[in-house]
Design a protein around this nucleic acid. Sequence first.
DNA 1: CTCATCGGTAAGTCTCTACTAACCGTTAGC
DNA 2: GCTAACGGTTAGTAGAGACTTACCGATGAG
Lengths: 102, 102
Amino acid sequence: MTNRSLAFAALAEPMRAEIVERLAARPMAVGELAALLPVTRPAVSQHLKILKAARLVRDRAEGTRRVYSIDPAGLGPIREWLDRHWDKALAAYADAVEREDE
Amino acid sequence: MTNRSLAFAALAEPMRAEIVERLAARPMAVGELAALLPVTRPAVSQHLKILKAARLVRDRAEGTRRVYSIDPAGLGPIREWLDRHWDKALAAYADAVEREDE
DNA sequence: CTCATCGGTAAGTCTCTACTAACCGTTAGC
DNA sequence: GCTAACGGTTAGTAGAGACTTACCGATGAG
């Protein structure tokens, strides 16, 4: 699976999207996140594992706690893919309109 | 489910991402798509239904054929969401760095 | 060293989804 | 009207994944 599909799949899950929103506001530890969300800590841990694989979050050790924050790396590929294909679609559309004028 | 989550979930499926890529190159009918992809026509039809619900594709009738093309409408919400939260994350990060200097 | 806290992992369950085969409605040409 | 082509829908199945409880390793305080 491509890294881009990993990122889309990660963000498709509403709970993971909310985790990203929380971490975007400020970095947080796992237990802190779990306390704010309607799921158990292991569930949060599993979501973070998936977000990390998609390079959407990073983590750093801080004593026994692991503080997670947004990783900008995963965003690039999906932004680029979206821009590329939608631009292509618009170009193809403009092309079709032009051809109709003939 | 939000429209944004619909769009992310739609694009998370590799087969649907490929359908989007094909349609970005040029609008196509359902059977035409199915002939190019390693799945049956009903599968393509179901994928298109999901992409249409996410407003990522449109369709127009053309005789008995239905020609599908990219719909720009679904792109906006996800681009906006990505930009908003990643900008916020970067701002929060800059803020944290600044606080460390104290 | 001991014990509590923090967090990742394993096992099991339940729901969701991607797919195929079979069917049905609709349009176009003869 | 009849028939063929096109495509959406249904029913059924196999696989993925989101969640919980229970467990285990690692760090830090006393």
